[in-house]
């Protein structure tokens, strides 16, 4: 027993060094599995507050570019207004409606919630974005985030009462399912950690007809994003050795360098779908 104490006293510094390194590496590994302690709630609130002070100054420098992008977004929306479209002449045609009205009424699946970007990183190998709205605005983990021009930015990974953290597309764990708009082939998104704004889409079969400049959109196979939201435009097509798949690199439609505002997409059916999925996963 005495020898053990002597040993600890002799190598105290080295043992402390090993312990602290161990804690750090444990934090790195455990974070990706989403086992994050309650401590992060407090820490995120503190850093969130400092960040929002800073960004309120920084936002002035982006006002011009922000206005331009909002103008574009508004133009798109105005063009979709009902008033722009004339109804076809229906008086010449008559038909009996046999379906109950209720069943063809539209209902809302997706709601957009606007938020200001408080902190944003591009240069790190794992990038995160912080928004200034959280649980109080109904934001939950797993919701999708788009920029003002409706291009995919990332997925919410953490929320506090007033802030939420978004895992951006530029993160090694971000695997959104995307597809080619032309040929409808679906693949999985990944980022190699090097150039911002250049992301790759893997598992595209070699039978696909792709050309540079094609649009890549969301597939709608997950509950996070509606179908057909812009992801980016194809930059190059690369053959993957010894496999039947292409690796398609594309420029992201969202500009991560200039991102003052973002929208969080709430899906009314997310909980219902996730519950069923959980049930399936539980079965052996």
């Amino acid at each position: 027993m005495r020898n053990i104490f002597l040993f600890i006293r002799r190598y105290f510094n080295f043992l402390l060094f090993l312990t602290l390194q161990g804690i750090s590496i444990f934090l790195i590994i455990s974070y990706s599995n989403h086992h994050y302690a309650a401590f992060s709630r407090v820490a995120n609130n503190v850093t969130g507050q400092i960040n929002s002070r800073y960004s309120s100054v920084q936002h002035y420098f982006y006002l011009k570019r922000t206005n331009d992008s909002l103008l574009k977004a508004n133009e798109l929306l105005y063009n979709k207004l009902k008033g722009n479209f004339a109804l076809p002449d229906t008086t010449t045609r008559s038909y009996v409606d046999s379906i109950r009205i209720d069943s063809i009424l539209q209902y809302r699946r997706y709601t957009y919630v606007g938020a200001r970007v408080v902190a944003n990183s591009v240069a790190a190998p794992n990038n995160f974005i912080v928004l200034d709205r959280g649980k109080k605005a109904g934001i939950k983990e797993g919701m999708g985030v788009v920029d003002p021009n409706n291009a995919v930015v990332g997925i919410i990974t953490e929320t506090t009462d007033d802030y939420s953290v978004v895992m951006s597309l530029l993160h090694k764990d971000s695997h959104i399912s995307g597809k080619l708009k032309k040929g409808e082939e679906t693949g999985t998104l990944s980022w190699d950690g090097k150039e911002p704004n250049l992301v790759s889409l893997t598992n595209i079969p070699k039978s696909a007809k792709i050309s540079v400049g094609d649009s890549v959109i969301t597939s709608g196979f997950s509950t996070t994003f509606p179908k057909g939201i812009m992801l980016g435009r194809v930059e190059g097509i690369y053959k993957e050795a010894s496999s039947n798949y292409y690796k398609v690199k594309f420029f992201t439609a969202a500009n991560f360098h200039n991102l003052p505002y973002a929208y969080v997409i709430q899906n009314a059916e997310q909980d219902a779908v996730n519950k069923i999925l959980e049930k399936i996963n539980k079965q052996p």
Binding site: L20, Q21, I23, S24, I25, F26, L27, I28, I29, Y31, S40, A43, N44, V46, T47, N51, A119, S121, A124, N126, F128, V130, E158, V165
Partner: peptide, 13 residues
């Protein structure tokens, strides 16, 4: 610093 980057561990190590 890690808490500002939202992924703890790297800089502490």
């Amino acid at each position: 610093l890690d808490n500002f980057r939202h992924h703890p561990g790297f800089h502490s190590a």
